[in-house]
């Protein structure tokens, strides 16, 4: 069990999203950075579908009321236990009473906290993601607040055995950071200017030549209006060859829409299900976290790749995660 002692800026429980209900207009929600979420879960031997806590810029303060294993991935928001800075991207064993705090954002925008066993909250329409605007899912359909108590699910046998062997060890430490982490290439670095790869949007051909060039030859700045629904970008105005009214159709995580003001919006986790603005591009699935980890005021540049390359990268990433899962499992076993 763990307890929230201090609110963060926006701390919500999220999983991989609510699929299957978009045809009823139900927003998919889910984590903004699926890669960091998946890795947080596999670092504590959870299924990748378990919910994690998405922590935005200013993190909450949390007390652990039982011994448990957790992992933090994603943006570095200066995590510490009982005031001692801790490492990310590795399992950490904490004893009952430990306090997890966050400080200054160092890199990235969102961190993911996975606890072995996951969080015991009910599914709404097959998902435990919080959808704030409708007040459903996650923890009581809202962001976590001071005083909230989160119950945990049952952790895997592997983690249980690991917890037991550690508690037997003679040590007075209140928490132990594993001495291993993921291979370096599996840990992303978050820059203040990201190169984001896209494939053509369904209406890319409707834009005039000048706009098509401008789209790839400038750095867009992330507007302060950006949130879980969409990232608004500021840059040179983009325009269609001729004005055209489009018929609303499905959009997805990473669709880049251009409304009539010519400033693109990248649709994110809490995007609407359909949209009527022309889509100039679509961020590749693998590059979505690069966008999610940018803060307002930072920059991104777009680079065009083919659908084949994007799907190739996606398959490779899935393969990498599978490999990491196996190697983490072996490391847990070695500890017992």
């Amino acid at each position: 069990m763990l307890q929230i002692n201090k609110d963060g800026l926006q701390t919500t429980m999220q999983d991989l999203g609510r699929t299957g209900f978009q045809k009823y207009g139900v927003i998919a929600s889910g984590v903004m950075d699926p890669y960091a979420h998946r890795l947080a879960n596999i670092l504590v031997d959870n299924e990748e579908t378990e919910p994690t806590i998405e922590i935005t810029l200013m993190g909450p303060h949390i007390t652990f009321h039982s011994n448990c294993v957790f992992a933090l991935t994603g943006g570095n928001l200066s995590p510490a236990i009982d005031g001692i800075p801790i490492k990310m991207w590795r399992p950490i064993v904490v004893k009952k009473g430990c306090k997890l705090t966050f400080g200054k954002p160092i890199s990235g925008c969102r961190a993911y906290l996975a606890v072995a066993g996951g969080f015991d909250v009910p599914e709404v329409m097959g998902s435990r993601s919080t959808y704030l605007r409708a007040g459903i899912g996650g923890f009581e359909g809202r962001a976590l607040q001071k005083g909230d108590i989160l119950q945990l699910g049952e952790c895997s046998t592997l983690v249980k055995n690991c917890l037991m062997s550690i508690s037997k060890e003679e040590n007075k430490l209140t928490f132990i950071q594993m001495d291993w982490t993921l291979m370096a290439e599996a840990i992303p670095t978050y820059k203040k200017e990201a190169i984001v790869r896209i494939i053509d949007g369904r209406q890319a051909h409707l834009f005039d030549e000048k706009s098509k060039d401008a789209f790839f030859n400038q750095a867009f700045q992330i507007s302060s209006d950006s949130d879980r629904m969409g990232y608004r970008l500021n840059g040179q105005k983009l325009a269609l060859k001729e004005p055209k009214e489009l018929i609303s159709e499905a959009v997805s995580f990473g669709s880049i829409q251009v409304p009539s003001d010519g400033q693109p919006i990248v649709l994110m986790a809490d995007r609407q299900t359909t949209g009527g603005y022309p889509k100039i591009g679509q961020v590749t699935t693998v590059d979505l976290p690069k966008v999610s980890q940018l803060k307002p005021g930072e920059y991104l540049r777009f680079e065009r790749i083919s659908l084949e390359e994007a799907q190739h990268d996606l398959i490779n990433e899935r393969g990498l995660i599978k490999e990491l899962k196996q190697s983490i499992s072996l490391k847990f076993k070695a500890r017992i």
Partner: peptide, 23 residues
């Protein structure tokens, strides 16, 4: 097939990409 989203004149189908199953 992961999800089907009908609209006015389009039906969008989300699918699971694997080595054996691409566009």
């Amino acid at each position: 097939i992961v999800e089907v989203i009908p609209a006015f004149t389009t039906v969008t189908v989300f699918y699971e990409v694997t080595t054996q199953f691409k566009y």
